[in-house]
Amino acid sequence: MLELYDVVELREAIPGEQLPAGAVGTVVHIFNDPSTAYEVEFADADGRTIAMVTLRAEQVVRRDG
């Protein structure tokens, strides 16, 4: 299970948000009911938010290091 502020990577593209598979974001909220989901913030190189998306656990993987 992921924790708040974990850095994650998308396993699949989210075309509606222009996010490719492999995009890197940060978990900013965790939902546990009715099932686990994560609000993930994606930012550009300048730190500006480009997307804020709620994702199912299987759509992301923790990025180590």
Rank of each mutant, 00 (worst) to 15 (best):
Y38R: 02
A45V: 14
V7C: 10
P20I: 12
G25R: 06
F31H: 02
D44V: 15
A43S: 10
L4N: 04
D44H: 11
A37G: 06
E9W: 05
R62Q: 10
M1I: 14
G47H: 02
P34D: 07
V27T: 12
I14P: 00
V61M: 05
Y5H: 06
A45W: 05
Q59C: 00
A23N: 06
T49N: 14
N32R: 12
L19N: 10
E17Y: 07
L2D: 08
L55R: 04
H29K: 03
G22C: 12
V28S: 02
P20Y: 07
L55Y: 02
A43Q: 11
R62T: 03
A13E: 06
L4T: 04
A45K: 13
T54P: 00
L2M: 11
L4F: 02
A45F: 09
A57V: 13
E3Y: 12
L2T: 10
A43V: 15
E58N: 14
N32C: 12
I30Y: 01
Y5R: 07
V8T: 07
E17D: 09
V27H: 01
Y38H: 05
F42G: 07
V7N: 09
N32L: 14
V24M: 08
I50A: 09
V27C: 04
V24I: 15
E41M: 11
S35Q: 15
R63A: 13
A37C: 04
T49D: 10
A57N: 08
V60N: 01
A51F: 00
R56C: 11
M1K: 07
V61W: 01
E12M: 06
E58C: 11
L19M: 10
P34K: 02
V61I: 08
E39T: 11
L10Y: 01
V40I: 14
G25P: 02
V24G: 05
V28C: 07
A23T: 07
R63S: 05
E12K: 03
P15V: 12
L10F: 01
Y5K: 04
Q18G: 07
G65M: 15
G25K: 05
F42Y: 09
E39A: 11
T26K: 04
P34E: 11
Y38D: 01
T26I: 15
A13L: 07
I30L: 01
E3M: 14
P20G: 10
A21I: 05
A13G: 09
G22W: 09
F42P: 01
S35H: 13
D44F: 11
D44W: 09
M1D: 11
I50D: 13
N32T: 15
V53E: 01
E9C: 10
S35Y: 14
G65A: 15
R62K: 08
H29N: 08
G22A: 15
D33T: 06
A45D: 13
G25A: 09
M52P: 00
V7D: 08
M1Q: 10
T26A: 06
